[in-house]
Design a protein around this nucleic acid. Sequence first.
DNA 1: GATGATCCCTGACTAAGGTCAGAGGATGGA
DNA 2: TCCATCCTCTGACCTTAGTCAGGGATCATC
Lengths: 295, 295
Amino acid sequence: MVSQVRRFNRTVTRDVGALNDRFLGRDRSLGESRVLWEIGAGAREVRALRNDLNLDSGYLSRLLRSLERDGLVTTGPGRADQRVRVARLTEAGRAERQLLDRRSDAVAAALLEHLNERQRRRLLEAMSAVERLLTAATVRVEPMDPAHPHAQHCLDAYVAELEHRFDNGFDPTASNPAEAEDMRPPAGVLLVATLRCEPVGCGALKLHGTQPAELKRMWVDGSTRGLGLGRRLLSELEACARQHGVRRLRLETNRTLVEAIALYRSCGYTEVAAFNDEPYADHWFEKRLQAGDPG
Amino acid sequence: MVSQVRRFNRTVTRDVGALNDRFLGRDRSLGESRVLWEIGAGAREVRALRNDLNLDSGYLSRLLRSLERDGLVTTGPGRADQRVRVARLTEAGRAERQLLDRRSDAVAAALLEHLNERQRRRLLEAMSAVERLLTAATVRVEPMDPAHPHAQHCLDAYVAELEHRFDNGFDPTASNPAEAEDMRPPAGVLLVATLRCEPVGCGALKLHGTQPAELKRMWVDGSTRGLGLGRRLLSELEACARQHGVRRLRLETNRTLVEAIALYRSCGYTEVAAFNDEPYADHWFEKRLQAGDPG
DNA sequence: GATGATCCCTGACTAAGGTCAGAGGATGGA
DNA sequence: TCCATCCTCTGACCTTAGTCAGGGATCATC
């Protein structure tokens, strides 16, 4: 398995590596091309550039000076905060950027040139699978304090989504509560999924001593659906519950959340009679955890 | 299509890029790590290293001195030719190389870690498809003089393979001739397929004025079978024939060459009665070329 | 045994990428 | 108003990667 991955890397870095940014800059150095590209069409704060390209402040400054000398970029003070500087492309800079773009397109097109229609379709299909699965593989799932900005983002997005999807909207104060304290050890746990430092999903466990634990706040960002992230969150929450000696998990959900319901069923949850008076719930589920199950 | 390829590149160079050789060397520079790796278990001539890694002779020399200083490599004169020098790893060098190896494995394994079994299978399957198709896409097919070493390699391999596969071996002098002159313009043409500068397949066209042209010397190296290379050679030979105003193509083949026969059938060749007395042939095929067909 | 070619080495040089310390202007809060 | 902080810039410095021009040893050939 591992050797197959390494083979893939070799091939891809050898063949596709050539169509990396690396060779697309003409007489421009890689650093300059990257900055040119990252500034983009509009204006861009220098500190944002520094952050996204992960460059030293002195180095970036020099790159910008060099691009300025070549008449591709202008920099000026920011409007709100005069300390930050804002870079924007000149007409010539935009032209140069488009050239990089066209060159990148040309290299990609050259790759497909000698394949027949069936091979192209197959290649694109496989590329998209690799892309999706690599993305899924780089998602990190970790316990997080509910007060953390990433956690807050997820919980807010959860509420906003229910508000949008439920037939009559969603008012969290009218629902059975899941407050920050309930999701913070030792009362419970909140897992947050992050993709390249951006929060993209969450799920919480509310412990009740020897009574069944509750699953709450399961949410996956629209942009990362279809990667199996919901299933992964669920399985990590279950592993977590098992570690706390939980033998039974419960959850309630609304009939409009069809993907969630399908997920619960396919993960071994069985529908049971209502075990609480949650006003927004239409279905109640339960799963018995085997102590020896793998995470 | 092109944008999908570019998306793939971004994802792969961002996620997999990290598990490039680049970051696997500890405090060792990339150049040194590459040399360390390339020397391998046994001894390696310096000029071979220079060739394979495509390094300047002065630069490589310096890299070797630096590795020698660190006690990872020893160099000595070659046995046969004292001008060439031979590099070999010391005990410490082998250990360092294994460490690179393990690190590479670890990074690859980490990629798979958070995927479930189904996702892993799908990822490996898609990776192998991408790998195969990228390889296929980087094969170049060009006309070549039959005397060129690459062409000679292919023609020799063709004969060797028939010798090996035919029930009673193969003696080219007993077969209908396809001499160098027959495959050289204007009498004919020889196409050779090369993958990363190595010859991996060929196919020839023998023109007969207004009479049907003959396909000869179709061969694909074992290592590159299944990439659609035979089909591509065939289609480029047909395009070539069309350019010469050829209306009908003919070929004969032996019954042991089952993949070739399947290929001819699937490319629109139909079996016809024997049109020559080739002693090694069991099947004769023919195809009518439409003048307006795409290449 | 002379000669030219081959192979490796050293020295000199360049460009890119990157790090660090500190200067100096702008800002925000006490 | 003052002071700590933030953001950017400059200068100084380093490593890596890579190129080029010889020089010395060795080899093949005449």
